[in-house]
Write a protein that binds this DNA or RNA. Sequence first.
DNA 1: TTTTGATCATCC
DNA 2: GGATGATCAAAA
Length: 228
Amino acid sequence: MFAAPDTPPATEAGLLSRAEGIAGRTLAYLAEGLGRPVPDDLMRHKGWVGQLVEAALGSTAGSAAGPDFPKLGIELKTIPIDANGVPKETTFVCTAPLTEIGTLPWRDSPVRAKLARVLWIPVQAHKEIPLADRRVGSPCIWSPDAEEDARLEADWNELSGLVADGFVESITAHRGHWLQIRPKAANRKQRTWGEDDEGDPIRTLPRGFYLRRSFTTELLARRFIVAR
DNA sequence: TTTTGATCATCC
DNA sequence: GGATGATCAAAA
């Protein structure tokens, strides 16, 4: 049976080694080793896969702010893939800091910080496979290359500029090539502080930055050998 | 309540 | 089918 580590890996190589160790395993196998039940579906357990893999790799960060592996400065992202190895969903990056976004150049942005070093782990997600039988794919540790960084910076500048100018209420997810801003909330009634075009405080729906599927699709195609 | 982990449901 | 807007749970 799978024995889950109870401490975080000491090095990046150690983390990658653990990730390679669970590649090819089913979610049920990992869940059993962790003593966690496998839910019937993800309807009311949307974060279950991500949290399972976190625990399987020895992350103790929980829901604390910051990277999943603080000592290593590495963020873990599971990525749901279809039968062809193509991502099925966008990837949440971070909450949009609506009131301070105008003061944050790309180099100081939470998006850049989150994506500085990411451990991507694809997980089968097509509905035809029961949740328990879905398998974990091969991992890849990634940092944006110069081109990716530049493109993300351009998106950040566009989107953060709109928010800073008070257009948060009219931004749609159509904006941005690789990054987009979408709601990130319990429901549509939730509110947080933002600013209107006069710089005055307003109550508005919390938003988050997400990576488009086109971005993660290219990432997988270029830097992964996807387990089928 | 906020931050974490995301996927669902609907419209085009 | 794919993208957008809406939504769900656990932990601290």
